[in-house]
Amino acid sequence: DSSEEDNSRLSMLPHLADLVSYSIQKVIGFAKMIPGFRDLTAEDQIALLKSSAIEIIMLRSNQSFSLEDMSWSCGGPDFKYCVNDVTKVHIGSFVCESRCLWYECMGLFSADRPGVQDHARIEALQDRLCDVLQAYIRIHHPGGRLLYAKMIQKLADLRSLNEEHSKQYRSLSFQPEHSMQLTPLVLEVFGSEVS
């Protein structure tokens, strides 16, 4: 609604849009480094990025989240987001180490994303990553036999957050006064247009 509280809550939208826009570019750079990604068709690369970018960004945002004051630091004291600013984004404090990277890859290579064509190939890429993640856990977390299963469960949680984000994005982008504050890249990646 148009309450004052609602307006002030969106006052950081331009900065948030910039942050997300920057993060999308990082996600694209990250995806390009994963063996196999660039061998996919351009259409599949685009479909995977459009559907998974927000999940990777949400995962990464946990690295700048402080449990001490329950806020995200996004470049200096002037750019702090408290939990209320971004209520739906926090997904619990992830331990950020290299297993997170494998995890991000696995989310990226989900063959059941909308618009994906070469399902078999993407599934094969994900299977390979699952094997690597399991091996990584065996070596670095010998006692963590349930860790892999828990992480797979978290992928499902990320999906729900992705859906929530899509809903919120849609309602935001229908309001011209808000959508004009987004960047062209954000509009393109989160827009509904499928490649």
């Binding site: 062209p184 890249l185 393109e188």
Partner: peptide, 17 residues
């Protein structure tokens, strides 16, 4: 197929070095 998503295509194509 439409040749849209121009920014994504550009970012995917560009050489990162």
């Amino acid at each position: 197929k439409k040749k849209d998503n121009a920014l994504l295509r550009y970012l995917l194509d560009k050489d990162d070095n």
